[in-house]
Design a protein around this nucleic acid. Structure first.
Lengths: 229, 229
DNA sequence: CATGAAATTACACTACGTGCAAGTTTGCAC
DNA sequence: GTGCAAACTTGCACGTAGTGTAATTTCATG
């Protein structure tokens, strides 16, 4: 069987996909909290018990999209050259995400779960998980540096701040553009990500930066980033 | 009866306290996830239903301690002069928390729930809630500035980063010192908070941090740690 | 003390999440 | 193909979470 994936793995992937599809469909139709695991299972053509073999809860099933999104970002990050400044790597990784295919599921999920406490919990967890992953990635990168003692505080503070800035950019973007995925909207998102990382890179030195989602990068872009733009 | 608190309010506060005490006691004795709401209620001398009148879940009851801790920090933040740089206000507010009475409950809670997924969720939620509160506080502060358009991205990125750095400092502290609340340990915590805010204020320019605003932060930290280990 | 508001309680009910013991499908060797 | 073992699914049962509701108790006030 010269396929890359065995039949078993294909079936599992299909089932997993069917579950998340069903969950998203129900979320669209009924709104958050207004449907049960049993309905998801029925809609996905499986038993209630099998659902729990794949996901530990409804929120986990939905949060798998966020996880996919963030794993994608992390993959981008790991591919950056090791001698690049971390902030620049993060900026580049985040930039890859301002892409219709990538943000579409997340954008919709965000608009649908905006005001729901239970669901946004899982989102928080996903972001936190990504933070931990970035810490690992950054630690590995520094570990390549011989003789350098890795400063755990620096790592954690930096990774947390990067994620916070990415999250802030997406929050502002959602608030401004909703689920709009037009090129103009995505350009806004890119600029927000750039600006957020710029603020971070410059130590948040400008309390009132000149705002403008237009083509001109705001004054907040730092020397460090300007070098590369 | 011109008491500051009516009998009703006193009773409610006492019940609330009894619940959190009971939950913490059970957490100590049985470990996370190994006790039920019914046990908490019984131990607190109330009915199961009454428990849910106070807290929506076991985790919520335990997370109320974290909320208290962070509300305290927020209160400190709001009391800072409005013309002070935000980062300095945040640093000062966080500094007030490196106090035995304040961190003690949080430290124990942290060590007890270290490896528990469900409980750390509520902790995440508490930190996120505090972030939102800081955003509000900072927005109010800027709103006092006439004619200034508040940059939502700046606010959210900054608040998120500040919280992330505070969290990073506490994570590192817990990892290094456990639940140790000795003066030396608290000094380490203070220094970690200072260093984290220093990193943030300098745009994370130094992979191996060297210069701080005063004295020699990093060496001071390691020195203190060496003393204890 | 009487009365109404607020809090507690018992009860019932739905849904969640899990262990277990079947049954079913897939992979692999013969 | 046949047989077998491992992986996967399913139904069932059980304990627990969380909530609506109505009855009961506690507290403040006239």
């Amino acid at each position: 069987m010269p396929e890359l994936l065995s039949r078993r793995e294909l079936n599992k992937a299909a089932t997993r996909q069917a579950i998340t599809d069903a969950a998203l469909t129900l979320l669209r139709a009924q709104g958050p909290g207004n449907f049960t695991v049993e309905e998801i299972a029925e809609s996905a053509g499986i038993s209630r018990r099998t659902f729990f073999n794949y996901f530990s809860s409804t929120e986990a099933a939905l949060a798998s999209m966020t996880h996919g999104f963030l794993d994608n970002a992390l993959q981008q990050f790991r591919q950056r050259p090791a001698d690049e400044p971390i902030l620049e790597s993060a900026r580049a990784a985040l930039m890859q995400l301002a892409d219709p295919m990538t943000v579409a599921p997340l954008a919709e999920l965000f608009t649908l779960t905006q005001d729901n406490a239970v669901l946004s919990r899982s989102e928080l967890e996903a972001w936190d998980h990504c933070t931990e992953e970035i810490i690992s990635a950054a630690r590995e990168r520094f570990a390549g540096n011989p003789g350098a003692v890795v400063d755990e505080l620096y790592l954690r503070a930096l990774a947390g701040s990067v994620i916070s800035c990415g999250k802030a950019a997406m929050d502002v973007w959602f608030a401004q553009c909703g689920a709009d995925l037009s090129p103009a909207s995505l350009a806004v998102l890119r600029q927000l990500l750039i600006d957020a990382m710029g603020h971070l890179g410059s130590g948040f030195g400008h309390p009132v930066p000149a705002a403008g989602p237009s083509a001109t990068p705001t004054t907040a872009t730092t020397h460090l980033l300007k070098e590369r733009l």
